[in-house]
Design a protein around this nucleic acid. Structure first.
Length: 554
RNA sequence: UGGGGUGUCGCCAAGCGGCAAGGCACCGGGUUUUGAUCCCGGCAUUCGUAGGUUCGAAUCCUACCACCCCAGCCA
């Protein structure tokens, strides 16, 4: 795995820090809260944190920022680890938990109280809001701000002991209620929550806030560069305040970068959860979800996601990346690596009237047009086969390069055929095309010099296999589905999933393993479903269609 | 109207006083048993706007404008 050669502003900072001795090694961390599945935005953060560590010979921790037990669960802890590993990253040592530091954090809180820098406040949530002031008006000091150290110590101990009800008291840092930075108006360090924690059980009834826990967690782990997204920029003075006022043994620095926004996509955990809870999709790993698990099931590869992250770069400006870039990254990967195969999604029977009924020729087709080392597979050729209904017309203009009555077409990896007549059902619909083969056209052009105009895929009617094929498309048909406050669900693409129950696939495809990717020639890239595919009942998901520059009509 | 940020091609993004990289998308042309891939070519006299400094500015200064974030006992 080659280190990222890309240079961004974070790398510049790190290079400087290394050069001037501020740090002797690089230690980053990826700190998700286990309250949902990781999505493509997290992939960027993972790529930044692990990538920077890797590129500078350092390491990166995986730390669960589990300070709010109400929203978190073990399910998410497991899925997150699986996703990070799948992306190909390895964290330093064991998985870390902010909750492992609860005792240390508490001791430090006592320390701040002793220093007169923290106090217990009895204001309820509503009162606290009033005292906090507004963006343009300063706040007012809490009436409890000047409690004695002894009283604060006693109250804090009793908070910890469970003597007070939720919301009755909080521990606040004593900073500046008039600060223009709202985060510095005596921010809350501890709140009472009488709920069990997924890691610490019922050991605690008070839980530290993100602001109080994060920087200290970084310091405990020896994190040198604590990288987060732009919205935390205003928190940096607070981050620094805690680290500077506590006897921590290392001094981490926080840096912020712009979070990833993708058009035609929502990446807010709340909205993703809603899609799952409302049953709009079939779970966090639905192939239409921008979650890592969903993308994996859709057929994205770790390499394509990493490539995408490299393409978009890391800056402090917040833009909206075109989802076409993501699509490019996966096409590029799959074009280079996915074996080719043939499948017919909308079958139309073709009978080769000159081809003996009992005859079966075993043709050999290369698995990749330019990578011989990917081998080849056998392709049974028979009198009856299926082609895609879109690949036949009774008549067409010169631009149409497929099968036309009275004209020729190349069957991919097989013969050139010529269409002679059609068979219709009672309703007048074409149900069969009768054609004949042009002799000696395997690997050769017709001897009479009349070359076919195009090439189409096919599957033997007698030797082909049936498969379910799920055609996925973007979940939203609006560029910015969550812009504004209106319900983002109204922008759902009604055709984000189309299931083809009975597609025909060439026999070799039945041996596909779950998560194996293929290019179904002329159709797109497909992956055998991670959970529901089997040799008996093959299921393929369309990852992404082939680039299509054909303008019919033009 | 407080504080913190960001503004370079439709999108992402280099550039850090010497005369606008690259990628995506798009548009031409060539090769091709995938209308794919691949290959070649095109695509910002201009860097949010207006002034100023300078021989010279996207890069420095000033003012203005636009957009994003902050008033959770969420992260």
């Amino acid at each position: 795995m080659e280190p990222t050669p890309v240079k961004n502003f974070l790398q510049s900072i790190i290079s400087d820090d290394l050069a001037n001795g501020r740090v002797s090694e690089v230690h980053t961390r990826f700190p998700p809260e286990p309250n949902g599945y990781l999505h493509v935005g997290h992939a960027k953060s993972i790529h930044v944190n692990f990538g920077l560590a890797e590129a500078n010979g350092g390491c990166c921790n995986l730390r669960f920022d589990d300070t709010n037990p109400e929203k978190e669960s073990q399910e998410f802890i497991e899925s997150i680890q699986a996703d990070v590993r799948w992306l190909g990253f390895q964290w330093e040592g064991e998985v870390r938990y902010a909750s492992s530091y609860f005792q240390q954090l508490y001791d430090w809180a006592v320390y701040l109280v002793e220093q007169g820098k923290a106090y217990v406040c009895d204001l309820n949530a509503e009162q606290a809001r009033e005292y906090r002031g507004t963006l343009t008006e300063p706040g007012r000091n809490s009436p409890h701000r000047e409690r004695s150290v002894e009283e604060n110590l006693d109250l804090l101990a009793r908070m910890k002991a469970g003597e007070f009800a939720e919301g009755e008291k909080v521990l606040r840092a004593k900073i500046d209620m008039a600060s223009p930075n709202m985060n510095l108006r005596d921010p809350i360090m501890y709140r009472i929550r009488k709920v069990a924690h997924h890691q610490t059980g019922t050991d605690w009834v008070i839980y530290p806030t993100y602001d109080y826990a994060h920087g200290q967690g970084d310091a405990i782990e020896g994190i040198t560069h604590s990288i987060c997204t732009l919205e935390f920029e205003d928190h940096r003075p607070l981050y620094d305040w805690f680290v500077d006022n506590l006897p921590v043994t290392s001094r981490p620095r926080q840096y912020e970068f712009g979070r990833l926004n993708l058009n035609y996509t929502v990446t807010s955990k709340r909205k993703l959860k809603q899609l799952v809870d409302d049953g709009v999709v079939h779970g966090w790993d639905d192939p239409r979800m921008p979650t890592i698990a969903g993308m994996r099931r859709r057929g994205f590869t770790p390499g394509s996601i990493r490539k995408f992250c490299e393409m978009i770069g890391v800056t402090r400006s917040d833009g909206v990346v075109d989802v076409a870039m993501l699509e490019f990254a996966i096409r590029e990967d799959l074009n280079a690596n996915a074996p080719r195969a043939m499948a017919v999604l909308n079958p139309l029977k073709v009978v080769l009237t000159d081809y003996p009924e009992a005859q079966v020729e075993t043709l050999v087709a290369p698995n990749h047009p330019s990578r011989e080392e990917l081998g080849s597979r056998e392709l049974p050729f028979t009198r009856e086969l299926y082609i895609d209904a879109d690949d036949f017309r009774e008549e067409a203009n010169k631009k149409y390069k497929r099968l036309v009555l009275g004209k020729r077409v190349r069957l991919r990896n097989a013969y050139v055929i010529e269409a002679d007549s059609v068979v219709r059902d009672a309703a007048g619909e074409i149900v069969e095309v009768h054609a004949h083969t042009i002799p000696d056209t395997i690997g050769a052009d017709p001897a009479d010099g009349v070359k076919p105009k195009g090439v189409i895929q096919w599957v033997s009617a007698s030797h082909g296999r049936r498969a379910e094929v799920r055609l996925y498309d973007r979940l939203f048909n609006h560029e910015a589905p969550d812009r504004g406050d209106a319900d983002f669900l109204r922008h759902l693409n009604p055709e984000s999933l189309r299931v083809v129950e009975q597609a025909w696939i060439e026999p070799a495809l039945a041996g596909a393993l779950p998560e194996q990717s293929f290019q179904f020639e002329r159709e797109g890239y497909f992956v055998a479903d991670r959970f529901e595919h089997s040799a008996d009942q093959p299921v393929f998901n369309r990852t992404i269609g082939l680039r299509d520059t054909w303008n019919e009509g033009a």
